[in-house]
Design a protein around this nucleic acid. Structure first.
Ligand SMILES: [Mn+2]
Ligand SMILES: [Mn+2]
Ligand SMILES: [Mn+2]
Ligand SMILES: [Mn+2]
Lengths: 220, 220
DNA sequence: ATTTTATTTTAGACACCCCTAAAATCAAAC
DNA sequence: GTTTGATTTTAGGGGTGTCTAAAATAAAAT
């Protein structure tokens, strides 16, 4: 099955939205994710459905098929490998890679990806801590907890961010919260869920629940 | 001026054809180069003309404008830098890079190209010996002579190939004629222009005029 | 059960890029 | 100068992907 660039982008979005919840994905959600209008989404859903990468009942939302998931994971794999390349080899900051990877992920060349993977030494995670699927689409999932759900006095290690936007990543840089940093929950405010944490054993940071929910850690 | 991928490809083709001769470029030549139909070319010429990257009088062929040349050279620069990357870093053979570079050259990111250039140590030539324009579009031209135009007993060094097709490059590999190899003209057949050469001071190779015309050398 | 509201789909339109077939134009031969 | 032949353009149409406005449908409220 050959997909166009637009189809690949839609399918990847549908895959990501599918992973978030267990229910089928709505037209509006896809439109929001893709920054297009629902009418455009309906049109695309018909095409993706014809190519049998999604299953689709009008008005009742979308489910990705096994074939569709496999294709989406290939795109995710390419996206994340390119992100690693940009950061590790070309010295991009982790908040500068997303847009470029969004283009690079559509280059069609199995050899290229195979060689890139080898060149990068078969990385397992991208610069944002997200797992890189292998060539068969298998993902090594790590248990990850948003730090606002950790208990006071618990320690852990930051392994990923949920939000990879440049704005959020720059905030992470600002407070010294990099992937791999140790964190300890010092205090939680019951009222609004905000937390105070110790980052990297040296810096106290106070953050809202919304921010904390985007920082994922393994507890230790 | 923003060009679509198709427009970039056409403009690059027009640039290459312009460099070959001094006359303006014909619709048919562009169609042949782009492997499309003349009707499609006419359509595209109208668009490129509106964007003022070519000057175009109906029925009288095309000339590239200074602005168009600058844009074409940016695409050429990206194409050749990616080719170097593929060969030097990802161990592609020089006959495997063209198709992939044809896609990679359209990635939009000035930072990416600047970093790639630095990462590759500011290469001056691509794997086929073609010069890489700098960021301002300046090209360092080398004097290059097709080896069928060299005299008997003259020596030189292969610096480029005119034809970069996989088939021709594999022939080059087969006869041991790599970029940088020394060559000496041993004999020329008046009748059909074919030549016998000594490659790399060790291998005698007999080739047709057509083949020899695609191997470019500096005389020494 | 009916009305209201939110969501989703369809209709119609436009930009892009390609095609075939037909018409227009240029250049060469007579 | 007129005819002929090659080249080029235009006309018309198909596929992709987007949009706005209107219609259809589902879900929620009464
Ligand atoms: Mn993308
Ligand atoms: Mn990422
Ligand atoms: Mn290209
Ligand atoms: Mn080249």
């Amino acid at each position: 099955m050959n997909l166009t660039v637009a189809e690949e982008n839609y399918l990847k979005a549908i895959y990501h939205l599918s992973e978030e919840g267990t229910k089928s994905v709505s037209t509006n959600d896809i439109a929001a994710e893709m920054k297009t209008k629902p009418a455009s989404v309906s049109d695309m859903l018909r095409k993706l459905s014809e190519k049998e990468v999604i299953s689709y009942r009008k008005y009742y939302g979308v489910n990705i098929t096994p074939e569709g998931k496999k294709l989406a994971l290939q795109t995710v794999r390419k996206h994340r490998l390119w992100e690693v390349f940009l950061v590790e080899k070309l010295n991009f900051a982790w908040d500068e890679v997303h847009e470029v990877a969004e283009e690079l992920e559509h280059i069609q060349s199995p050899l290229l990806i195979q060689r890139l993977d080898a060149y990068l030494n078969y990385p397992k995670f991208d610069p944002h801590g997200d797992p890189i699927p292998d060539e068969f689409g298998d993902v090594k999932a790590r248990p990850r907890v948003p730090i606002n759900e950790m208990e006071v006095n618990q320690s852990g290690q930051i392994v990923a961010v949920k939000d990879s936007s440049a704005a959020f990543l720059r905030y992470m840089d600002k407070v010294g919260a990099y992937i791999g940093a140790r964190v300890k929950i010092l205090d939680k405010v019951e009222f609004d869920g905000s937390v105070e944490i110790l980052v990297d054993q040296k810096k106290n940071v106070f953050m809202s629940k919304d921010v904390a929910a985007n920082i994922l850690a393994i507890q230790s």
